[in-house]
Amino acid sequence: MPAMQDMAAEQPLMSVRDLTHMYGNRTGCRDVGFDLYPGEVLAIVGESGSGKTTLLNCIAARLQRTSGTVAYQMRDGRMQDLHALSEAERRFLARTDWGFVHQNPADGLRMSVSAGANVGERLMAVGQRHYGRIRETATDWLGRVEIDHDRIDDRPGTFSGGMRQRLQIARNLVTGPRLVFMDEPTGGLDVSVQARLLDLLRGLVDDLGLSAVVVTHDLAVARLLSQRMMVMKNGRVIETGLTDRVLDDPQAPYTQLLVSSILQV
């Protein structure tokens, strides 16, 4: 996988330039630019209101840009401006090539159907019809996210918060996406549950060679999951670089404040 990663690394999977989103007169995010390469995990950090979720929604084409470009490398290798796609094409891309992990699992799951159906539904959306095979794949994925197979017919409402989040991850990864967006994937979970989820995510990203953009306000999550990091404040990127360098040798005044504010245990 690393060898493959280096070969494919010539061309970015996603290329963002001068991306701006305004809420009326208020800035969501402004003049953001970055390249994400295959196999890379990029963390976007910053406090509430810094624009990181707005940015995530813009690059995942869930929110219209005000200006700028988001180009994505389609499976045939061509770079496509996401905001030039039709709504149907965007939805197809989101269903097949991408995953989106919400902070609140209820936003990414269908709470009224079983765990197995939540995973199977994504498979059916990409054209799988064979019930036995869908159930088999769903069972396999529940196992990979450490959910007992005897819970397959239970609704997510009967699951704990950590289990729901793992189910959401299985639902997202079952179709073999190339890019996963995550919005505070460990937010709202107990610390011990967070550790398990982080380890799981780290393993899956490694094994599958996934690219990911992870929004988090937790610098420890950024350190564990990402190779590169962007720090946002007031809608702008104020520092960017290798994750360990940004954390160990922060340059911008705000990044220094963020890093020095972490409680040592």
């Binding site: 670089g241 290798l242 360990d244 360098r245 160990d248 040798d249």
Partner: peptide
């Protein structure tokens, strides 16, 4: 050492 490793600028 950290500059060579890249964790310091």
């Amino acid at each position: 050492l950290k500059m060579v490793h890249g964790s310091y600028g």
